[in-house]
Amino acid sequence: MHGPASPAWLLVALCAAAGAYCLLRMRSGVEEQRRAAGGEALMGFGMAAMAVPAAVFAPPRWVWPVYAAVFGAAALRALWAARRDAHHLHHLMGTAAMVYMSVVMALAPAGHHHMPGGSGVAPVTGALLLYFTGYVLLTGARLVPATATAGPGTARWGDRPELARACRLSMGIGTVAMLLTM
């Protein structure tokens, strides 16, 4: 997750901005928006923290198991929420990807930021890349008509569906970028 500095900082900014917008969405008048926004804010800020270039801040080894535990708890919450809304299955995939990346980082030898023991793409990394690439393409295609039809001033910032989709698209792109560095 710690590749070249310039793209890493762009990823940090993208994920932090998505997390900040999700915090705004938590003030929405729509209960479902508030419920989903909290998990998405956690994902955005967690991704931003994981993407900070190693040259700036190399976290201690104990941080990775903590990330895995936090995102594992978020995955359990998403699994529970998926009982009533299938959208939470995507949250489950996102949190599972974060747990996976945290475990890989915890197992990597000091100074190495990729899958230990071999070359090539690990099957789990490949499966996650396929899922998130498909998600990014599908969400991007859905976003185009939404921005063309949404009228100005029709909803508050936290209730704008096209902004929520753009936020999810940004985090999906960020996840693909992070997985590519594994």
Rank of each mutant, 00 (worst) to 15 (best):
G44Y: 05
R34N: 03
A108Q: 13
P123A: 06
G3W: 00
A177G: 07
A166Y: 06
T175E: 04
C167S: 15
Y135Q: 10
T133Y: 02
L92M: 11
T147L: 15
A97P: 01
Y100Q: 07
H91Y: 07
P60S: 12
V63I: 04
A58N: 14
A122L: 02
E32T: 14
G153E: 01
V99L: 07
A13G: 10
F132M: 07
A41F: 00
A73F: 07
Y67A: 02
L24M: 14
V52S: 00
T95F: 15
A78V: 10
V56L: 15
A150W: 08
R83D: 10
A78Q: 13
L23I: 14
T95A: 13
V144I: 07
T154A: 13
L76T: 05
G158M: 10
A122M: 01
Y100H: 13
W64R: 04
V70A: 13
V70N: 07
H90R: 13
P65I: 02
L143S: 04
T125G: 03
Y135P: 06
V121L: 14
P60C: 04
M93P: 05
S119K: 04
W62Q: 08
G72K: 12
A82Q: 09
Y21E: 02
V124W: 01
G174W: 00
A74V: 03
V103C: 11
A127M: 13
V70I: 13
P152W: 15
S28L: 09
F45W: 11
W157E: 12
L76F: 11
L169E: 07
V121A: 11
D85Q: 03
E162T: 08
V144S: 01
P109Q: 03
P53A: 03
L128S: 12
Y100G: 04
Q33K: 07
V121R: 09
L89K: 10
A8H: 09
V12L: 03
H113Y: 14
Y135M: 08
A96G: 11
V70W: 01
F132D: 11
L180K: 01
